[in-house]
Amino acid sequence: MNEKVLIVDDELEFIDALAERMSARGMDVTKSGSAADALDEVKKKGFDVVVLDLQMPEMDGLEALKILKAQKPEIQVILLTGHATVEKGIEAMKLGAMDLLEKPADLSVLTEKIHKAQAKKMILVEKKAEKRIQDIMETKAW
């Protein structure tokens, strides 16, 4: 199944090239130039994975991650940053990011992480569905 990926970065030349390369590898890619636009996109469309730049104007990646995870906890987030520090990494993981990659990233590494993220999302969605069925069965006393 094609991964539905949203790439968010204020460097438009970067997301243009990255999106084209990811699309050529069979992914369904949407681009967004700001965190605010990305949050709107997420409301409109179901994504498996969001590849999010850490440092962006107005709303940074960590703030966007917090909102995103509150809205759609099953979406997997991979953060991209110019300089990955241990502190940032820990903070990102605590907020629910799946991984943190340093720019410039190797596309084969990013692609592998996206595959894993999609698989993780599928498991979460399945678990959520199972839980719902279980809840319905319990309330209906079946």
């Binding site: 460097e11 970067f14 084209e20 390369r21 440092q55 110019g82 300089h83 720019k103 410039p104 990233a105």
Partner: peptide, 24 residues
């Protein structure tokens, strides 16, 4: 220097993706 190194990393990331795109 933090601001500048971030800018340089962004340049490298754009060059990296475009070089990769050309190879593709």
């Amino acid at each position: 220097t933090a601001s500048v190194s971030h800018e340089i990393k962004n340049c490298l990331a754009i060059m990296n993706e475009n070089a990769g795109l050309m190879t593709d």
